[in-house]
């Protein structure tokens, strides 16, 4: 009788997700800075701008939603991306990816407010969009990586699927790396996922730091010219690196990284909250 190698994932992933939802819960409270004056209506005026401009606008809206952790902003960004997709007429992999990316943020938002049914709906949507993105552009490694990352959420919602999905998740990450080895966002997602995986299961802060350092290095060289292509994540890479240093009790380095994150994006709520926490203590 030979035996099962993958059973340990059954335990790992729910833990990752518990940790994730706790983190975002904290984030949620921390980011309760006064909402800025951005229209939260889901209907946006306009229509004559080019597709690139529209996508840029939607990306900005998404980032604003992440900065302030505002559900309405996230929903608005999502609508704008769908609008871009319909305008594009063809199945544009990058736009499909961005809708899924917005769904990913929505999932974490819903999980942090214990709204599992909504999280599940967003997850199902995100997966469909990514599957389409992967089909539309098979060389688009970022879609594979995000897909692999999202399988972690599926395990959190359906622990009974852990055994099979745990393996698939790593498979998608591998595919992502295979297609786009120098992509900072793939390293970032891997780093975040390792950050929340206990050390006993191959994760842990040291492993996470290796990926995050790689991501940070790549972000410094990352120039995204095409407005349709993904360009998020630099501030998050620094922030997570900061969190990793904090966990290693290297508070000096932690602050340094969080400051760098704020240099990239002065509005980034998670970094602001973490930095103020460190400075108070």
């Amino acid at each position: 009788m030979k035996n099962n190698i993958h059973k340990h994932f059954q335990k790992t992933f729910p833990r990752i997700l518990c940790a994730l939802s706790v983190l975002f819960l904290i984030f949620n409270f921390a980011a309760a800075s006064p909402p800025r004056n951005i229209s939260t209506s889901s209907f946006q005026a306009g229509g004559s701008a080019s597709l690139g401009q529209d996508v840029q606008e939607a990306k900005a809206k998404l980032q604003a939603g992440i900065n302030t952790w505002d559900l309405e902003l996230l929903k608005t960004a999502r609508n704008q991306f769908i609008n871009c997709l319909l305008k594009a007429k063809t199945e544009n992999a990058s736009i499909l990816y961005h809708i899924a990316l917005t769904d990913y943020r929505l999932i974490t938002f819903y999980l942090s407010s214990s709204n599992n049914p909504e999280a599940e709906k967003s997850l199902a949507e995100a997966q469909k969009y990514l599957e389409k993105a992967m089909a539309a552009d098979p060389s688009f490694g970022e879609a594979d990586a995000l897909y692999g990352y999202l399988l972690g959420f599926e395990i959190a919602l359906h622990p009974e699927k852990a055994m099979t999905l745990g393996m698939s998740s790593f498979g998608y990450f591998s595919k992502g790396f295979e297609k786009d080895p120098e992509n900072p966002r793939i390293h970032l997602l891997k780093g975040i996922s390792l950050f929340y995986t206990p050390e006993a299961y191959g994760g842990g802060v040291d492993n996470a730091m290796a990926s995050l350092n790689k991501a940070v290095g790549l972000f410094e060289k990352d120039v995204v010219k095409d407005p349709l292509k993904p360009s998020w994540g630099k501030e998050e890479a620094y922030t997570y690196l900061g969190l990793a240093y904090k966990q290693k009790k290297d508070y000096g380095k932690a602050k340094e990284m969080l400051k760098k994150a704020l240099e990239v994006n002065p509005e980034f709520g998670l970094a602001m909250k973490e930095l103020s926490g460190l400075e108070k203590s």
């Binding site: 009788m1 030979k2 190698i5 692999g148 790593f170 498979g171 591998s174 595919k175 891997k190 191959g202």
Partner: peptide, 29 residues
């Protein structure tokens, strides 16, 4: 099995003998 992003594997012992498996990304490529 094919490419993987991180190491996996283990060692098994049973009344029938031993079994072991390892999957390891040696480098990025």
């Amino acid at each position: 099995k094919d490419t993987m992003a991180k190491g996996e594997g283990g060692l098994g012992l049973s009344v029938l003998g031993l079994n072991s498996y390892i999957g390891w990304p040696l480098t990025d490529d």
